[in-house]
Computed example of a mutant assay.
Amino acid sequence: MFHPLRVHAIERLTDDSAAVTLAVPPGLRETFRHKPGQHLNVRYTVDGEEIRRSYSICSPATGEQAGPTLRVGIRLVDGGVFSTYALKELVVGDVVEAMPPMGGFVLMPRPGRFAAIVGGSGITPVLSMASTLLEREPDASFCLIRSDRTAGSTMFLDEVADLKDRHPDRFQLVTALSREEQQAGLPSGRLDRDRLGRLLPALLPVAEVDGWYLCGPFGLVQAAKGALRGLGVDRSRIHQEIFHVDDGPETVTGPRPEAPAHSSLTATLHGRSGTWPVPEGESLLETILRSRSDAPYACKGGVCGTCRAFLVSGEVRMDRNFALEPEETDAGYVLACQSHPATPEVELDFDR
């Protein structure tokens, strides 16, 4: 369910990014209580067209309920309708509709050693993770390895510097710029798999890190994951969230069951169930949306995880999955936007 939130402040971070602060009414503060790393799905009507997008929350997560505001980071995307609108036309006082915070890319405060490898706007959820962890857990440390094009394109410079000032013994910052030399720090260049494989053991005891959090462009996340696996890090300690995946080939591997000639879908959503035929070539999300406009979605590209649903019965074929952890797919969860029926009858439950 979407709720109207008024724009409280807009702060330009770089030439192509901004932090947008949304006011949370007192009656919705429990609803909008977030975990560090979660995102908001927002919608806005531009020229008569409904636009939905996901934006990560950079605010620290409070213990009991949400504060009076939530802050999200928005970077301009080439051809991005909402990001263009948000950076060029959105003003304080406007109302944006948002769903309650969601997402499984989360670091709850606990003792231990944690690290993140981020690129570009991938800093946004990790900023919430690091600030929450360091403020609420005195026996935790955090290493942030970030990659940006230039210093001028780097989001949340002041916030990250403030973390370093407030927690000098528990927060480690390493910055790599791909298109600009630095006076101090790493030489310029991309953080590819080979470079990360050499860099990480020199920075921290890789085997002692309790959780690795990877966020940003697909190429960087894949490189970081490959480097960590090459260094012997168990898959269960690696968590990822990918931003802006271009259209490309299918990514889900394994046996591909044949599609049935005719199939039907039963779905439970907000306590109500319905059954509909699934037209050939249509995703399960598209089938539901023809009858239920309240079906949850945002990117429709297998990235945000908003359309996550539990597969009650039947089998499906997923084309792409950049949102669900292996533990989630093993437990029976699928992305409705990427799922197609592989049996004559399929049942999904969005309420689990």
Rank of each mutant, 00 (worst) to 15 (best):
G226R: 06
F171C: 08
G122C: 01
A98Q: 04
L196C: 09
L199E: 12
S59V: 00
A130P: 02
G305M: 07
T329P: 00
G122P: 00
C299G: 07
S293T: 15
T69W: 08
R190L: 14
R352H: 10
D294I: 11
A86K: 08
R136C: 03
R33E: 15
F82W: 15
V77E: 10
S54N: 01
P26A: 07
M102K: 12
I74W: 01
G219C: 06
P26R: 10
A224N: 05
T253S: 13
D194G: 13
R237T: 12
T306D: 08
A259R: 14
I123Y: 00
T266R: 13
T150A: 03
E315T: 09
Q338E: 06
G302R: 06
E50G: 07
H244D: 09
M1N: 12
A223D: 11
L133T: 02
I74N: 03
A86M: 14
L87W: 00
E11H: 12
M102L: 15
E328G: 02
V252P: 04
P138D: 05
R166V: 04
T69C: 06
D351G: 08
L5I: 09
R235E: 13
Q183M: 09
V96S: 03
G254A: 01
A295F: 01
E135C: 04
G67D: 06
L284V: 09
L191N: 07
R53G: 09
R6K: 15
M129N: 03
D47M: 15
I51T: 11
G27V: 10
D246R: 09
G232R: 02
V303S: 04
P344C: 11
V206D: 01
E89M: 09
T306S: 12
I242W: 01
G232A: 07
F82Y: 15
H34L: 06
H39R: 05
A298T: 11
T306F: 05
Q38I: 05
K300D: 04
G27E: 15
G301M: 10
V312K: 15
E282Q: 15
L144I: 10
V334W: 10
C304G: 04
G63Y: 08
H340I: 04
C143E: 13
S273P: 00
A223T: 02
A18F: 01
V252K: 08
L177Q: 01
H270T: 09
E250Q: 12
I117C: 02
F2L: 12
S236Q: 13
T287P: 14
G93W: 05
T329L: 01
T14F: 00
R6L: 08
L284P: 04
F2M: 04
E258C: 08
R6D: 06
T287K: 14
L28Q: 07
D78R: 15
G314R: 02
A66G: 15
Q240M: 11
C299W: 10
G27Y: 13
D351K: 14
R110N: 14
L204E: 14
T175M: 05
T132L: 08
D16C: 05
G219Q: 12
V118G: 07
T124Y: 00
A207D: 14
G332N: 08
T150Y: 02
S273L: 02
D319N: 13
E97W: 12
G73A: 04
D139M: 12
